[in-house]
Simulated assay, not measured.
Amino acid sequence: MTHAVLEASGLTLSFGAIKALDNVSFRVHPDELLSIIGPNGAGKSSLLNCLSGFYRPQAGSVRFLGQDITRLPTHRYAELGVGRTFQGIQTYASMTVRENILCGFHTRMTSGLFSAFLYWGRVRREEDRYVREAEAIIEFLELEELRHASVGELPYGLRKRVDLGRALAMQPKVLIMDEPMAGMNPEEKSDLARYILDIKEGRRIPVVLVEHDMDVVMDISDRVMVMEWGRSIAEGTPEEVRNDPRVIQAYLGVEA
């Protein structure tokens, strides 16, 4: 059996009397796109926050590449290779596309403040390397003509693409995406879905995706997990989930 890249075991999280997660367990395997769906309030974002270190569950554990990372500081998740994008845009509006993407390399940089101030040879070589890698991401996301454009002047869909580029600059071993297509028009969604598939298949980075657009989810996912009231109620291939009576009743709705 293939070892999991990311594994949640019995995650339980409460906010006062509200149980956001109730004994949730699942695995993410290499070269896999796992989508997590469910109605608003199902616990999807709380689950992603536990997987990326922003929340600490009261019970259960998160394992990454076999290591228990549940209680590690949040920044260590990024350093280990857990990448994350959020529902809102997290770019720097006054900076260029390339500068925003370069910010994503900060967890990989080894130069200290003193050596950076003096701009020694090692610092220059490191900077040159990350500029080349940033350019590769810009080319991958088809942002070449916008590399020097100020991100605050870009349309919403392109700013989301820059946000994705910065997450890729972290060189993640797994990428967690929270509703990346929210607010996008159909053309922008189609473009982003293509990039997500290229990340999984071309860059071989497994993806955990929370998304409300069921057409996109069913089209690009390898597996789908369905949540309701903090629990996982179904898990399987898109076709299996689509035909699960519990899912139809809880989320997808019954066709007339």
Rank of each mutant, 00 (worst) to 15 (best):
V5I: 15
P73E: 08
K200G: 06
G83Y: 13
E133V: 02
L143F: 07
T70M: 12
H106C: 07
V162D: 14
R84I: 03
F114S: 09
I248Y: 07
L118S: 04
I18P: 03
G152D: 10
L48D: 06
S61K: 12
I18C: 00
N23D: 15
V207R: 00
A169N: 02
V151R: 04
E187H: 08
Y130F: 14
D22W: 00
G16K: 06
R204A: 15
Y195W: 15
E179D: 02
W229A: 04
V254R: 12
V254I: 14
G253I: 10
V207F: 01
R76L: 14
M95E: 12
V254Y: 08
S9Y: 08
R204I: 06
S25A: 13
V5R: 00
I220W: 01
H3W: 05
E153Q: 13
E239L: 06
I176K: 10
E187C: 01
G88D: 12
E188F: 02
D31E: 12
L6N: 13
S94P: 01
Y77H: 12
D198F: 00
G38S: 14
V151M: 05
H29P: 01
Q90A: 15
L102T: 03
Y251I: 13
V123S: 05
P206F: 05
P206K: 05
A134M: 05
G253T: 13
P245H: 05
G112F: 09
G112I: 04
T2R: 07
G81T: 04
R129V: 00
R132N: 10
R242F: 06
C50Y: 10
T85C: 10
D128E: 15
A169M: 06
L175N: 03
V174D: 12
G38F: 07
I220S: 03
D31L: 08
T237G: 08
S46H: 14
R108A: 09
E139L: 08
V28H: 02
L11Q: 08
G202R: 10
T237I: 08
N23F: 05
Q58V: 06
G10E: 13
G202N: 10
L33N: 04
A59G: 03
G183T: 07
L13Q: 07
G112V: 04
E211M: 02
E188A: 02
N100G: 14
H148E: 14
A17C: 00
R242Q: 12
V151N: 02
S150M: 06
